Computed example of a mutant assay.
Amino acid sequence: MARPFLKMNGLGNDFVVVETRSGPFAPTPADVRAIADRTSGVGCDQLIAIDKAEDADARVRFWNADGEEVGACGNGTRCVGWLLMQSSGKDEAVIETRAGRLIATRAGERLVSVDMGPPGLDWDQIPLAAEHDTRALDVALFDHPALSAAPGCVSMGNPHVVFFVDDVDATPIATIGSAVEVHPLFPEHVNVGFAQVLAPDRIRLRVWERGAGLTQACGTGACAALVAASRRDLVGRHAVMVLDGGELHIEWDDRGHVIMTGPAAVDFAGELP
């Protein structure tokens, strides 16, 4: 039976979103890869399923383009939050994920804020294979002149390592990102961010996403980069993150929660065979 889907994006980070509350949806890794394939499938960075939930508006599952199910996706959560609020007519949506409960709220016309909760900062929360200082790793992950500063590590429900560089656009992200993604220090592999601090409240960011490669935008990556930079006193507790697909506003608030605000867009509808 064909199953309807929506193609959505958050700053160009694109998703196939499937409504599954009417029946079970259990794609295999091969199914996910087929859907995500940009030549023979629909094409996306992540596949998202919206399931029924007992005490929330929905439970949401995420798969990367390589077929692996993952715990969190910031831009995807924002898109789902917008859909749920459009459906209910409310200004808030409660979303259960493998990484915990997230709250999405309206922030303007097609703008959504998501409370991503507190970041994980301990080495075993990332997780790392051994104990290290996550504020500034004392391990050389890749030998390249652009990586002169020690990276920081943050979990936003998924693992991130953030390198601070002088010029993001001159950094060979695919070469470094693909190698660091599978470094043995990260037993669950890792999302690799490259951040260039432009001002105390502005960061240029590109992210090599675990299982998806270089994307137009990464919501959890933007959250992780703000936290990593703030821990090093490179920026304050909030900043505009300048991604290839556009801008996100990230705040690490007084409660210790990370709030992500940005747009959500619907591209088209279709049916999966």
Rank of each mutant, 00 (worst) to 15 (best):
Phe5Glu: 13
Leu6Glu: 09
Phe15Thr: 04
Thr20Lys: 02
Phe25Tyr: 14
Pro27Glu: 12
Asp37Ala: 11
Asp45Met: 07
Leu47Arg: 07
Lys52Arg: 15
Glu54Trp: 01
Glu54Pro: 00
Glu54Ser: 14
Arg59Ser: 13
Ala65Thr: 11
Glu68Val: 09
Val70Leu: 02
Ala72Asn: 04
Gly76Trp: 06
Val80Ile: 13
Met85Phe: 08
Ser88Cys: 06
Arg98Ala: 12
Leu102Ile: 08
Ile103Gln: 13
Arg106Asn: 04
Ser113Glu: 15
Gly120Asn: 01
Trp123Arg: 01
Trp123Gly: 01
Asp133Tyr: 12
Ala136Asn: 12
Leu137Phe: 14
Leu141Arg: 12
Ala149Ser: 15
Asn158Ile: 00
Pro159Leu: 05
His160Pro: 09
Asp169Ala: 06
Ile176Met: 10
Ala179Lys: 13
Glu181Thr: 08
Pro184Leu: 08
Glu188Ala: 15
Asn191His: 02
Asn191Met: 02
Val192Arg: 02
Ala195Ser: 04
Val197Tyr: 08
Ile203Lys: 02
Leu205Pro: 05
Glu209His: 05
Gly211Ile: 07
Leu214Cys: 06
Cys218Asp: 10
Ala225Phe: 05
Arg232Pro: 03
Val240Ala: 15
Val242Gly: 03
Leu243Gly: 03
Trp252Lys: 01
Asp254Tyr: 01
Phe268Asp: 08
Ala269Leu: 11
